[in-house]
Write a protein that binds this DNA or RNA. Structure first.
Lengths: 192, 192
DNA sequence: CGATTCCCTTGTCAAACGACCAGTATCGTC
DNA sequence: GACGATACTGGTCGTTTGACAAGGGAATCG
């Protein structure tokens, strides 16, 4: 195995472990040693590839948004669907079901006015949100409220899966539950 | 000031600080020293009144659910409003706007299958959720998905207020934004 | 083929953590 | 008014944290 291959493979393993642990425990609760253990390496190697915990967090955020990005891109709060709004919305909900980590990154970073929040907004959220804004650049209140209503309604159930199982007896990873939630969100946010 | 008064006053100050810090930083990120500083006391006093961090967290959770409880109680996902469903839903959204901490407690605890999640479900969530279940006790998938759709759509924008401000330019604590979100949620979840 | 780069391991550092405890001063009780 | 209970202070304990540094050993290059 070549040098570059080895490097990329190891970094990818660490980033994937970081995504999982950051989503489970939040930034402060995720120790670099736990991430290393999850990636089957040592803590020293983590700080070798990612000199600081913040840098590792940003790499993890890049990774999850890279996965969910395509589904996120074409959500259309304004109502006039660019293409088939129903299909786009369905894809968005299903992507949230498959990758609930994104929601955790957004909620964890978004609640504090710090560098991580600003970085996440500027780097990942703003570019995509700006697509759904009016052309004059002024984001109407309606666009904002609709955006967060869609995001919250689509993601929450998958992001608190353990709680949902205990509270309702249903498993959000069950395809039947996913389908039901997709249909509900579609019914809510599309003029039937 | 009497002994009991002093005790209750101090405990209340600590609990309120704990609610704020737990909501901001999550369980792991909230240090007892920061909570103490926020409550204008010392760390020793915190561990005197609350022997363990878990116990303090539970006291903080009791406090926030005590505040939001009444509004939470009568949300009616099933559709047939027990009383005026629109007014109940409006109160629920406004309560979330006034106390976004509740959502953070739910999301932080609900994502892991640990003791805190189980305690929160059994102590606060299940009693209230059971009110909205069918009488035979079997929670339909529809009830579960509707419950989480309402909770997510109602709360997210207020829980990531700093992010919303930077992303959309609108402040979720602005009464106009709150009103707009209330109207949106009402339009979504009530058969107009 | 020798020299060098660099991925990785191991061990260590100060700082911060939750928990604990002895001591103090004030309130309540008899 | 003396004595016991208790809210509170200050300091310390072992552990865990993120960051760092020295060394090894295999891939890369001249």
């Amino acid at each position: 195995m070549t040098r570059a291959e080895q490097r990329e493979r190891t970094r990818a393993r660490i980033v994937e472990a970081a995504v999982a642990v950051f989503a489970e425990r939040g930034f402060d609760g995720a120790s670099t040693r736990l991430i290393a253990a999850r990636a089957d390496t040592t803590q020293g190697l983590v700080t070798y590839h990612f000199p600081s915990k913040d840098e590792l967090w940003r790499a993890a955020a890049d990774h999850v948004f890279g996965i969910l990005g395509p589904a996120f891109d074409d959500v259309e709060p304004s109502g006039e669907a660019r293409r088939d709004g129903r299909e786009v919305l369905r894809g968005f909900v299903e992507a949230n079901a498959a990758h609930p980590e994104v929601f955790h990154f957004i909620v964890d970073a978004g609640r504090n006015d710090d560098d991580r929040m600003r970085w996440l907004v500027d780097e990942h959220l703003a570019p995509r949100f700006s697509q759904v804004l009016d052309f004059d650049g002024s984001a109407g209140v309606r666009a904002a409220t609709t955006y967060y209503a869609i995001a919250g309604a689509s993601s929450l159930i998958f992001s608190v899966a353990p709680e949902c199982r205990r509270l309702t007896g249903h498993d959000p990873s069950d395809p039947a539950v996913i389908d039901a939630h997709v249909e509900l969100v579609l019914r809510l946010f599309t003029r039937s």
